[in-house]
């Protein structure tokens, strides 16, 4: 069979895939964010989690529980329990986070927002994790042309401002939960592909991989059993930050009017609807913003703990 690429293939790959000069430099906003988060934080702690890590875990657990249990929690409906007469009120005893422009309970909206926003962010990153991870594993394991072409593709996808990409995808495809999730997944695929590839490249050279191959393990088995377990920590720690970035991206999309339609309660939509009442009831914007801040902080922190625990080096990214 002829080579899948014409003679100029190598040249083309080289042309598109330019990573030597800056191989140790974060190539996209998430990796960059990752590098910034992990830069200079103290070296791996002793065994066990620190107080900070426990607080972060606690916050995330609380949030995820609230998100899952939202339908059974004794809170007003985030969309339908409207009361135009009591629009845009600050916090009261009954409504601790106040009421929004339609008189809906902001606390309830934040919990339902967590349900949708976290779903979107997790689903997007999990999709990116699986597809990007597979691409990265394959392109890192089969070096040469397959790897080169895939690497070049991710580089091209990365060579584009990610919010603009997500914005374009959503606006072209429509403002549904599915489409926003897909848009954010498309953004996270190349990021995860890139780090998985870099990490795979370094692990696939190791002796134990060669040994496994020599003992007759197939490619797939080698990839899944020998390489993947070693690459996983790096993937996971960047995925945690990816979730943080996806949460912010979802909110940003809503804020510029290109996120999920307002009839689905997401954190972005909660903030967006509060924007018109900055003077009357800033609480409508402040509380969801605070929740986003704590969540992103917690995810950054956990991503960093993971990185430090497994000693994932930035240069491996």
């Amino acid at each position: 069979m002829r080579d899948p690429l014409p003679d100029h293939g190598e040249e083309l790959i080289h042309l598109m895939h330019d990573s030597e000069a800056r191989s140790d430099v974060p190539a996209d906003s998430v990796t960059q964010h990752f590098a910034a988060v992990s830069a200079g934080t103290v070296k791996a702690k002793k065994k066990g989690l620190t107080i900070g890590a426990w607080i972060a875990v606690g916050w995330m657990t609380l949030l995820i529980l609230a998100a899952i249990l939202a339908p059974v929690l004794p809170i007003p409906d985030p969309i339908n329990d409207a009361n135009p007469l009591k629009a845009a009120q600050g916090p009261t005893l009954n409504h601790i986070f106040g009421l929004d422009g339609n008189g809906r309970d902001v606390f309830s909206r934040i919990i339902w927002g967590a349900r949708n926003s976290l779903f979107i962010a997790f689903a997007a990153v999990i999709t990116g994790f699986i597809i990007g991870g597979a691409l990265g594993l394959i392109s890192g394991y089969f070096k040469g042309r397959v790897g080169g072409v895939l690497g070049a593709l991710t580089d091209i996808l990365l060579a584009f401002p990610q919010l603009v990409l997500a914005l374009a995808v959503v606006s072209f495809l429509g403002r549904t939960v599915f489409n926003v999730t897909m848009a954010l997944a498309i953004v996270s695929i190349p990021i995860l592909a890139r780090i998985t590839r870099a990490s795979t490249l370094s692990w696939s050279e190791r002796d134990f991989v060669t040994a496994a191959r020599a003992q007759g393990a197939g490619h797939i088995r080698t990839m899944l059993r020998e390489i993947l377990p070693n690459v996983l920590p790096a993937m996971l720690s960047i995925a945690l930050l990816g979730i943080a970035v996806a949460i912010v991206a979802e909110a940003s999309l809503s804020l510029v009017g290109a996120g999920v339609k307002p009839d689905v309660t997401t954190w972005g939509n909660v903030i967006f609807s509060g924007q018109a009442y900055l003077r009357e009831a800033p609480s409508m914007v402040l509380f969801p913003s605070m929740v986003i801040f704590f969540t992103v902080y917690a995810l950054n922190y956990l991503g960093d703990v993971l990185r430090a625990t497994f000693d994932v080096r930035e240069s491996a990214l």
Partner: peptide, 22 residues
């Protein structure tokens, strides 16, 4: 580290609320 977790729209809205509106 905290600033890293602060999305720019949050800063923008805080500024708009306090420096701008209030």
């Amino acid at each position: 580290f905290a600033l890293l977790a602060l999305p720019n729209f949050v800063v923008a809205l805080l500024l708009a609320i306090y420096v701008g509106a209030k």
